[in-house]
Design a binder for these strands. Structure first.
Length: 277
DNA sequence: CCGTAACCCTGCGTGC
DNA sequence: TGCACGCAGGGTTACG
C-alpha cells in the first residue's frame, strides 16, 4: 500500500526510466480506473505526448506531459507500475498499458482495482478532490514544531486518525503513522489537544525521521509493494511495531499490541506508549 | 469538528 | 481438498 515513501520511490524510479519518452499507444482494459476524462479521450489525449517530468504530492503521483497535461495517479492499496519490455508476460490484473517510443512499456497493475487516474490540464489540478485538499508535506520545512502545536491544540480527535487525515499532513498512512507514534512514545488514542510541548516536539521529530527513513530504504514491502522496476523496499526490516503483534518491543521488551482504532489496525507498545490517565 | 460506517475489491486465513 | 465466510486495507463520502 503505497504511502508517501513508496510513492516517492516509484517517482524516482520512473524519473530515470520514462522522462523524455513519448507515448505511442495506450490500452485501457478496465475503464473505471480512469476518473476523467472518459477512457476513450484518455487514450486519445495521451497519444503522442512526451513525459517531461514526474512529481509527487502526498500519496499522489503526477506525470507531467507535453501540451500542459498532467496524469494524476493514486495507487490506493495495491496499485503499481511495471516498466518493462512489451514482450514480457502480461500479469494478471493489468488494467492499463502505455507503450513508449523507447521499446518499453509502462503497465498499471492493481489487484483490488482501487487505484484511480486523472488526466487534466495543469491549471485544472485544483479541481481534483483529494489532491486539492491535501495538507502540508511532512518534510516541508514549513512543517515545524510550532506549526504542529498550532494545528493540534484545538483538535479533540485521537492522534492516530489525525495523522492519517490527509488534510492535515499529506502522505502518512497506516504503517508510518504507527511507526511515528512509537518513535515519539505517544499512545495512538491520546487526544491531539492533550499533547504537551515535549510530546509535540517528539512527534515533530518522529514524523521527519520516520518519513526520511522510509524514503531512504525505498519504502516498505510487506504485502506486494514494488517500485516500477520490480524492486522491493527495505523499510519492513526496520519496523518497530507495524505488523509485529505479539512480538517484543525492541526498546523495552514488552509485547506489541494490536487494536482497532478508528477502523484501522493499530500496532503499539503498551509500555513505551502509555495511555493518558 | 468528530466518530462511525459504507463503499470499492481480491486474496487469504479460518472453520467446518 | 474444498467450500463458505469474513476480514484487511486507503481514502472519500454520507450521516448523526
Amino acid at each position: 500500500m503505497p504511502e508517501l515513501p513508496e510513492v516517492e520511490t516509484i517517482k524516482r524510479s520512473l524519473e530515470e526510466s520514462v522522462t523524455n519518452t513519448t507515448v505511442q499507444k495506450v490500452d485501457v482494459y478496465l475503464p473505471k480506473i480512469i476518473k476523467e476524462p472518459s477512457a476513450t479521450e484518455f487514450v486519445e489525449l495521451l497519444r503522442g505526448k512526451t513525459i517531461t517530468s514526474i512529481s509527487r504530492r502526498g500519496k499522489y503521483l503526477l506525470i507531467q506531459l507535453s501540451g500542459d497535461l498532467v496524469m494524476v495517479v493514486h495507487f490506493r492499496m495495491t496499485g503499481k507500475f511495471i516498466y518493462c519490455r512489451p514482450g514480457e508476460k502480461i500479469p494478471k490484473h493489468t488494467h492499463l498499458t502505455i507503450a513508449l517510443d523507447n521499446e518499453r512499456e509502462l503497465r498499471y497493475v492493481d489487484t483490488r482495482k482501487f487505484g484511480r487516474f486523472h488526466l487534466v490540464e495543469g491549471d485544472h489540478l485544483g479541481q481534483i478532490s483529494g489532491l486539492n485538499s491535501l495538507g502540508i508535506e511532512p518534510l516541508d520545512e514549513r512543517l515545524t514544531r510550532d506549526y504542529l502545536k498550532k494545528h493540534l491544540k484545538f483538535r479533540r480527535a485521537k492522534i492516530k486518525p489525525l495523522l492519517l487525515n490527509q488534510r492535515l499532513i499529506a502522505g502518512i498512512g497506516n504503517i508510518y503513522a504507527d511507526e511515528i507514534l512509537h518513535a515519539a512514545r505517544i499512545h495512538p488514542e491520546r487526544l491531539a489537544c492533550t499533547l504537551n510541548a515535549r510530546e509535540t516536539a517528539n512527534l515533530y521529530l518522529s514524523i521527519k525521521r520516520i518519513i526520511r527513513e522510509g524514503i531512504k530504504y525505498n519504502g516498505t514491502s510487506i504485502r506486494d509493494y514494488v517500485d516500477s522496476n520490480g524492486r522491493l523496499g527495505k523499510f519492513q526490516n526496520y519496523l518497530s511495531v507495524y505488523n509485529r503483534e505479539g512480538k517484543q518491543c525492541a526498546k523495552c521488551g514488552s509485547t506489541i499490541t494490536r487494536k482497532k482504532i478508528a477502523g484501522r489496525s493499530t500496532y503499539f507498545c503498551p509500555s513505551c506508549q502509555k495511555a493518558a490517565n
